Amino acid sequence: MDFAILLLVFLFGLLFGSFFNVVGLRVPQEQSLLAPPSHCPTCKKQLKPIDLIPILSYLIARGKCRYCRAPISSVYPLIELATGILFAAVYAVYDFTPVAWLYLLFISLLVIITVSDLAYRIIPDKVLLPFFLVFLVLRFFIHPDETYLSHLIGMVLGFTIFYIIAIVSGNGIGGGDIKLFAVVGLFLGYPLLLLTILLSTFFGAFYGVLLMIFRGAGRKTKVPFGPFIALGALLALFKGYDLIAWYFSFFY
C-alpha cells in the first residue's frame, strides 16, 4: 500500500467531509448547496478560502468565527476528520476496487444523515431516496459477501421491524430512522443488519444512561438515533463478520 496515496485519500476524505457538512445542514432546510456561499451562521459574513480549510481553519481560529468570534460547533471538524479516516480505511482494506467505491458511497450517506440528525433531528428523504435507488441497483452487481436476495431481505426486515416498533411504542422511533434501517439492511444484508440493530441499540442506550447520570435527562428526553445507527452500521461494515464469529465462539 502506497502511503502517499493513502494520505491523498485521507485528504480527499477531509474535503468530502466538509461538503457533507453542507449537505447535511442545507438539504433539510430546503436550501441550495451552492447559494448562498458558505458563511458564518451568526454574523452572516461570507467565509474566505482560508476559513474553509478542513480542520486546519477551525484550529487556527480556535473554534471561533474570525469575524464575530462566535463559537463554531466542534461537529464540523469532527465530521471532516471522521470522513477522512473512514475514506482512508476503505482504501487500506479494499484499494480502488468496485467494492471500495460502493463502501465510500455508504459512508457518505451515514456521514450526511449524522450531520442532519444532530442538527435538526431529521433524516431527510431527499438524502435517503437517491442512495436507496443507487444501492438497489449496484448491490445487484456487487454483493461479494451475501446474495442479492439477502440484501433485499435485509431491506424488508429493516423497515418492518422498526415500523412495528414505531406503532407499538406510539411513534417512539422516527420515520427517518425506519427508512434508514431499510437502506442499511439493503446495503449490508440481513445478517449484518441484525448486528447493526444490536450495536446501535446498545450505543444509544449507553448514551441515554450517561445523559441521565450526568445531565439529569429523563425517559422522555429526545436523542437523535441516526448517529448511533451510523456507528453500528460502520462497525458492521468493517468488522461485522468478525464480531459475529466472536459472539458465537462463546457457544461453540
Rank of each mutant, 00 (worst) to 15 (best):
A233E: 08
P71D: 14
F251P: 07
F141P: 01
I50D: 02
L199I: 14
P130R: 12
F250H: 12
W246H: 04
G84D: 04
Y76W: 10
F202L: 14
V209F: 03
L133R: 05
V27H: 04
P54Y: 07
F162Y: 13
G63Q: 13
P41C: 09
L118K: 06
G176D: 05
K64A: 15
L118P: 08
I229V: 15
P124A: 10
D242S: 11
L186G: 08
A119E: 14
I113S: 04
P77N: 07
F228I: 08
G17M: 00
G170T: 06
L59V: 14
C40F: 04
I173E: 05
I79M: 10
A245E: 13
V134C: 13
G204A: 08
L59F: 10
R215M: 11
P227D: 06
N171H: 15
A230H: 06
P124E: 01
G154A: 12
A236W: 03
M155R: 04
L210W: 09
C68E: 13
F96C: 01
V127A: 06
L136P: 02
G232C: 04
D51L: 07
A182Q: 11
R66T: 14
F20M: 08
G176T: 04
H151T: 01
T114A: 02
E80M: 12
G84C: 02
L78A: 15
F206M: 12
P77I: 09
W246T: 01
G216L: 08
L15Y: 00
F16P: 02
I142Q: 09
L59E: 06
L210G: 08
L34V: 15
W246G: 00
L152N: 03
K44A: 10
S18I: 02
S116T: 01
H143E: 01
L180D: 07
Y247P: 07
G17Y: 03
I161T: 13
V115A: 05
S73K: 12
F20H: 10
L180G: 09
L188N: 07
S116W: 04
Y91G: 01
R62D: 13
F135G: 05
R121A: 12
F135N: 07
P77L: 10
P224Q: 02
I142E: 08
Y247L: 13
F181A: 15
W101S: 13
L136N: 06
D117H: 03
G232I: 03
K220P: 00
I244R: 03
G204Q: 05
I173D: 06
V90A: 05
L7G: 03
I85A: 11
I213R: 13
G226D: 06
L180S: 10
I53H: 10
I72V: 15
A100G: 11
S74D: 00
W101A: 15
Y207P: 02
L118Y: 14
